[in-house]
């Protein structure tokens, strides 16, 4: 997704309001953007607090800054700068975190972002964009270029098998039909599940949805999704994020407020580091119960 992100921005780097800041990251990925943006590509050094405040200052001057780093370094280190300087002033700064969830794998817990959108969505005005598939990135960049509020873009790695076709970009999409439970996924983790889910017989195949823009608020959930939840009676939420502040919490609240809560809720989410051991993204997903086997188990 990082390359798709870079390619998308390159196309818009000539806009008069364009400016891109990186916290010294993007080697072997962002060079095309660096060439295209010229003096509007700024390596702000290893100083994320300053980078975010500088982005707020740039936005005050009428520019539309993007501030990029590895996900934990862009949302956690400068959290007060995001809160006070960007969100309190409702400035159009887009924070870009590469490697949401456990994407940085065996690099270790310092490089993971399993609580990023829960934390950020507690702030004023900010919206979160979590592409599920590679093709979502260009659509989101186009949206982000036009929006006027703080935003966080959580990048991962496209995991969708080429043979699975998905509808054109929308914040809520029904990816697979079926007569089983209703499954809602957030982020690229859903992509890797689609192949096996597609193979299930229609009677047990989950009505599979993906949501890419957060928060989920009452009144914004599409009627066909509500109908699927109502008809199936079993909602399964899959996300590479901790339970607290995650999609299941947001969605559960919204559904309960709407009087549309499901009879049964299953939540597959990041659970941290229970064994105290480290490994690949696949290893951490397995430890958290985020594999296809875990999904099939709750669908039984």
């Amino acid at each position: 997704m990082r390359n798709a992100f870079c390619d998308s921005l390159v196309k818009h780097a000539g806009r008069p309001d364009f400016v891109f800041l990186t916290g010294d990251l993007g080697f072997s990925a962002l060079e095309p953007l660096q060439r295209a943006a010229g003096d509007r590509f700024i390596n702000a050094g290893i100083a994320e607090q300053n980078m975010v405040s500088v982005a707020a200052g740039l936005a005050r001057q009428g520019l539309k800054p993007w501030a990029y780093s590895i996900a934990p370094f862009i949302y956690a280190r400068p959290l007060e700068q995001i809160r006070n300087d960007v969100c309190l002033h409702d400035l159009p700064v887009t924070l870009v975190g590469n490697g949401g969830g456990y994407a940085y794998g065996v690099m270790g817990g310092t490089h993971h972002a399993i609580e990023d959108y829960g934390v950020l969505l507690s702030l004023q005005h900010l919206r979160v964009y979590v592409p599920a598939f590679g093709a979502d990135v260009a659509a989101m960049v186009a949206l982000l270029l036009e929006q006027q509020h703080p935003a966080y873009l959580r990048l991962g790695r496209d995991e969708k098998p080429a043979e699975v076709e998905v509808p054109a970009y929308a914040p809520w999409r029904r990816i697979l039909g079926g007569r089983g439970a209703t499954l809602l996924g957030a982020g690229p983790v859903i992509g890797g599940l689609l192949g096996p889910l597609q193979q299930l017989p229609e009677a047990t195949r989950p009505r599979t949805w993906v949501v890419t823009e957060l928060p989920i608020e009452p009144g914004t959930i599409p009627e066909p999704f509500l109908r699927d939840v109502r008809d199936s009676g079993h909602l399964v939420v899959v996300e590479e994020h901790v339970a607290h502040g995650g999609v299941a919490e947001m969605l559960g609240r919204a559904l309960l407020l709407a009087g549309a809560g499901p009879r049964r809720l299953s939540h597959l989410c990041a659970t941290g580091y229970r064994s105290g051991l480290y490994g690949s993204q696949k290893f951490h997903r397995a430890e958290s119960g985020l594999t296809i086997a875990d999904v099939l188990k709750v669908l039984e």
Binding site: N50, S53, V54, G57, L58, A59, R60, Q61, E80
Partner: peptide
């Protein structure tokens, strides 16, 4: 221009404004 009160924010914000002036 900016809400301040938590210390250590004003100079980075001012630097951003100055950079904006420089770029524009």
């Amino acid at each position: 221009t900016f809400a301040t009160g938590s210390l250590g924010h004003g100079l980075p914000l001012a630097a951003g404004v100055a950079l904006g002036k420089q770029l524009k």
